[in-house]
C-alpha cells in the first residue's frame, strides 16, 4: 500500500488561509494529506504545537504565513521564521529530518502558489517516508 502522509498545516488567517481559500475558489487540486488549522498569525504557532504534532504521529508540519514585510501583525512572520529555524535544529538533533517542517510565505492572492507548495511538500514527505515517531507509535 502506498504511504499516505499525515500533515498538519498551520495557516495564518490573513495570508496563507486566504491563499488556500483562493486555491479553492480557483479549483486548483492538491493532495488531501494536508489538513489546515487556522491561526490568526504565523507568529501564534508555538514550537510546542509543532513538536506535539510530530509526537502525535504527523509526518510533516506546514506553516503558512504572510510574506516578509506583509505580516498583518507587523512582525509575527519574522518570529515564526526564527522559531522554525531553531526548531529545525532541534528536530535534527532529535533524529527527525528537518525537511519535515516547512515554512512558506503565501499571500492572499497566491492560490496557485499554495497549491504548488503544498503539492511539493506532500511529495517530499512521501519521499522521506513515515516519520520515525509515527513508526514507534
Amino acid at each position: 500500500m502506498s504511504f499516505e502522509p499525515k500533515i498538519v498545516a498551520f495557516l495564518c488567517n490573513w495570508c496563507a488561509y486566504a491563499g488556500a481559500d483562493l486555491a479553492g475558489t480557483s479549483r486548483l487540486q492538491y493532495p488531501a494529506n494536508i489538513v489546515p488549522i487556522r491561526v490568526m498569525c504565523s507568529g501564534r504557532v508555538d514550537p510546542e504545537f509543532i513538536l506535539e504534532a510530530f509526537r502525535k504521529g504527523a509526518d510533516g508540519v506546514f506553516i503558512g504565513g504572510c510574506h516578509p514585510g506583509d505580516c498583518h501583525y507587523v512582525s509575527g512572520n519574522y518570529k515564526a521564521r526564527k522559531r522554525v529555524e531553531m526548531m529545525k535544529k532541534l528536530l535534527k538533533e532529535m533524529g527527525i529530518n528537518p525537511r519535515r517542517l516547512r515554512l512558506e510565505w503565501v499571500s492572499a492572492t497566491e492560490g496557485q502558489k499554495f497549491a504548488d507548495v503544498v503539492s511539493q511538500f506532500v511529495e517530499e514527505i512521501k519521499e522521506l517516508g513515515p516519520s520515525p515517531w509515527r513508526e514507534k507509535k
Binding site: 510546542e48 526548531m87 532541534l90
Partner: peptide, 14 residues
C-alpha cells in the same frame, strides 16, 4: 508548562 525545553526555545527565538 507542558515542556520546559521547547518553551524556552520559542522564547529565545522570539
Amino acid at each position: 508548562v507542558r515542556e520546559q525545553g521547547i518553551s524556552m526555545l520559542s522564547a529565545l527565538a522570539s
